[in-house]
Write a protein that binds this DNA or RNA. Structure first.
Lengths: 192, 192
DNA sequence: CTTTTTCTGTACCTGTAAGTCAAATAAATC
DNA sequence: GATTTATTTGACTTACAGGTACAGAAAAAG
């Protein structure tokens, strides 16, 4: 009962996510958010509570989307090494296609907040753990089929690949358009 | 002529660097800087011009120090692979020994500003280029002595190692103290 | 010792970040 | 259609960010 919302909260969260993603948390203002969402500041506070709560929702949305991308990638068919190559290539091309070079909201959040914010660090840490696990299971699969060397610790290689992904997202923020990110992917996969 | 400064500007820049390093640029206030430096806000503006100028000086100081570390590491003796391992291990141990988990100011700046600030992106980009070059020369050395595989593009491996270093600094910001960063170093060097 | 110049501390200023609140508005239920 | 409940708008508030201005202090030059 009562008046219905004049905007779609889910769509608003996606808009807010984009603003935080481009500018970071500290540089984003409630007024800027309200403008981007096309609503008044009062409506924003009524609907979401405040800047920080909206950030939590936006970050959560991003993390869930990333988790879904990872999960779908896990189910992809084909040789393990080529799956890894295409996944990393897709990541790089996505990052480079972004006119704002936003990188990755999870990585950006990790760097901006560090461990100062326990909540953010925990949420982002969960995605990192999940990503590492996803890599590990694929590497184990590759070792079982003989596609990958078996003398390496799959967990350690998984950590390395998580680190590779995080590094790519960070470097994508300041990339010049030289082929650096592509070289990273090429060398990483070639070494496996 | 005139009154001499009551504080050491060089030491003040180092103090300011630490504050920016811990908190990032946007979350740092002039008052907080003045307090950390132990001087009045008026002295800060008189000596450095403003928050942004002081940031430039602090970042420049950091970049020069990093460049010096890299240069000294280039001259180290011993087998290439062990030099790489010890360099990355040193990096990880340094990052993990930091009670504030500041990571790397260059990486933090790249992620915080992205390409929005041309000046910062350019300065940080120079260090990234220099680091990549340093890795490349060491890899070429290793390939020449037969310590490393010669079938790989040295430039691509150098890009990969730069990416590894950047990723380590980013992950160090939210590290839990599980051995993830050490696993990254182990797997990376083992694969070379 | 005086003068000149620079530094220091404090007060002050303007703008805006972040959030609150009351009145107006509109939808759903009876 | 009257009532109830929720949303919207926009004015309002507090606090602080970022910076300026000025008066006083102190060091070097003469």
């Amino acid at each position: 009962m009562g008046r219905a919302k004049q905007f779609d909260p889910e769509a608003a969260i996606v808009q807010a996510m984009d603003v935080f993603w481009r500018q970071g948390y500290a540089s984003t203002t409630p007024q800027g958010l309200a403008d981007a969402l096309g609503i008044g500041k009062g409506s924003l506070y009524n609907a979401f509570g405040g800047k920080r709560q909206l950030y939590d929702l936006a970050l959560q949305h991003y993390l869930e989307a990333q988790r879904a991308v990872l999960a779908s990638w896990l189910e992809a068919p084909g040789p393990v090494k080529e799956r890894l190559r295409s996944a990393l290539t897709f990541l790089v091309e996505t990052d480079l296609a972004d006119p704002h070079q936003r990188g990755c909201l999870a990585t950006n959040s990790a760097v901006e907040f560090g461990t100062a914010d326990k909540e953010v660090a925990s949420r982002v840490g969960n995605l990192f753990d999940y990503t590492e696990q996803a890599f590990a299971s694929v590497i184990i699969e590759g070792q079982a089929t003989g596609e990958l060397r078996s003398d390496l610790d799959a967990g350690a290689v998984a950590s390395m690949l998580l680190n590779t992904v995080t590094g790519l997202h960070a470097l994508a923020r300041v990339d010049h358009g030289d082929g650096r990110l592509q070289r990273v992917v090429g060398a990483t996969v070639d070494l496996l």
